[in-house]
C-alpha cells in the first residue's frame, strides 16, 4: 500500500504536511531538514523542487526557490541528495514543483527515479487535469505515484466531483484564492467553504493549505479536513534559523500542540 493511503487509514489525530524547498536554506540542508521534520513528528513531507518562475507561489517561497537555484540545485542534484531517503525517512514524501523541469528531465525517467527513491506522490500545480488524464496518468500509475490535485473556493462542485474521481491519496484544498503565503489565519467565510466541501462526502480525504501558520489555524482547518499543510511559515522559519534541527523539531511540535 502507498504510504499516503496507509497514513490516512490509520491516522487518529490531524495530519500535518509540511512543505520545504529543496536545497534551502543551504544546498546540503535537504536531508537535515527532512530528518528534523520527522523527528518533530510531521506526518507528510512535501519537498519543493525549485523553479525560476513559480507563479502559484508568493514571495517567501519564490525567494527560497531562487536561493536554492542560485546554489546550483537541479532535479538531478535533488535526486542525488535523496538517494538514501528511505534509510532514514519513513513518513510519506511528496515532490512538489512546476511541470517544465519535469518535462525536461523526461516524464517517464522522472517517475521511474521517484519510484526508485521511494517518493509517494507528486504535486504539480500547473499540470492541468485534462493534460494529466490524456498523457501522464498511465505513467504515474505504472510507477505507483499518486498525483495530488488542488481545489479552491472557486472550483465548482461538478469539477470537484471529477477531481475526486481521478485523485488518489488526498485532495489539496487551497483555503482561499491566493498565492502561497499571501494570507494568514482562517476567516469565517473560509470555514463556510471548508464545511461545504466536508458535506460533499468525497471519496478522498482532504488536507487544507495556504494561510496555515500556527497551532490555532492548524486545528481550525483540521476540524473540516483530515489535516493541513504548512509551507511559507516553515520556509520563513528555516530561512532565519540559527539551530536548524532544534528549531524545526520545536516548530513541528508546537503546530501539533505537543509542546
Amino acid at each position: 500500500m502507498n504510504r499516503i493511503s496507509a497514513l490516512f487509514s490509520k491516522a487518529k489525530e490531524p495530519i500535518l504536511n509540511v512543505y520545504t524547498t529543496a536545497g534551502y536554506p543551504h544546498f546540503e540542508d535537504t536531508m537535515t531538514v527532512l530528518t528534523a521534520l520527522q523527528e518533530g513528528g510531521v506526518d507528510i513531507i512535501e519537498i519543493g523542487m525549485p523553479y525560476s518562475d513559480p507563479v502559484a507561489d508568493g514571495e517567501t517561497i519564490q525567494q527560497s526557490n531562487q536561493a536554492s537555484l542560485d546554489q546550483g540545485m537541479t532535479v538531478a542534484h535533488l535526486f542525488t541528495q535523496l538517494k538514501d531517503l528511505r534509510q532514514t525517512i519513513t513518513v510519506p514524501v511528496l515532490l512538489m514543483g512546476y511541470i517544465n523541469p519535469v518535462l525536461q528531465y523526461g516524464v517517464e525517467a522522472f517517475c521511474a527515479k521517484c519510484a526508485a527513491i521511494g517518493i509517494d506522490g507528486l504535486i504539480l500545480p500547473d499540470l492541468p487535469m485534462a493534460e494529466y488524464e490524456r498523457e501522464y496518468k498511465a505513467i504515474f500509475e505504472a510507477h505507483g505515484l499518486f498525483n495530488i490535485f488542488l481545489i479552491t473556493p472557486q472550483t465548482t462542485d461538478e469539477r470537484i466531483r471529477h477531481i475526486d474521481s481521478v485523485s488518489n491519496g488526498f485532495i489539496y484544498m487551497v483555503s482561499s484564492a491566493s498565492t502561497t503565503g499571501a494570507k494568514t489565519g482562517i476567516s469565517s467565510d473560509q470555514e463556510t467553504y471548508f464545511e461545504r466541501i466536508a458535506s460533499m462526502n468525497l471519496q478522498n480525504p482532504r488536507l487544507i493549505g495556504f494561510g496555515i501558520s500556527d497551532h490555532s489555524s492548524f486545528m481550525k482547518a483540521s476540524k473540516n479536513a483530515s489535516g493541513a499543510i504548512i509551507g511559507s511559515a516553515f520556509v520563513k522559519l528555516i530561512g532565519q534559523a540559527t539551530d536548524l534541527r532544534a528549531e524545526i523539531v520545536d516548530f513541528v511540535q508546537s503546530i501539533k500542540g505537543k509542546k
Binding site: Y51, S52, D53, V55, L69, T74, V75, A76, Y98, I99, N100, P101, V102, L103, Q104, Y105, D126
Partner: peptide
C-alpha cells in the same frame, strides 16, 4: 526548445534542467 511557461507549451529558452 519545447517547454512550458506562462500557461502554454511553446519554444522556450531554458537550461537543461528546465529553468527559464
Amino acid at each position: 526548445k519545447s517547454g512550458v511557461l506562462h500557461g502554454s507549451k511553446s519554444l522556450l529558452m531554458q537550461t537543461e534542467d528546465g529553468q527559464v
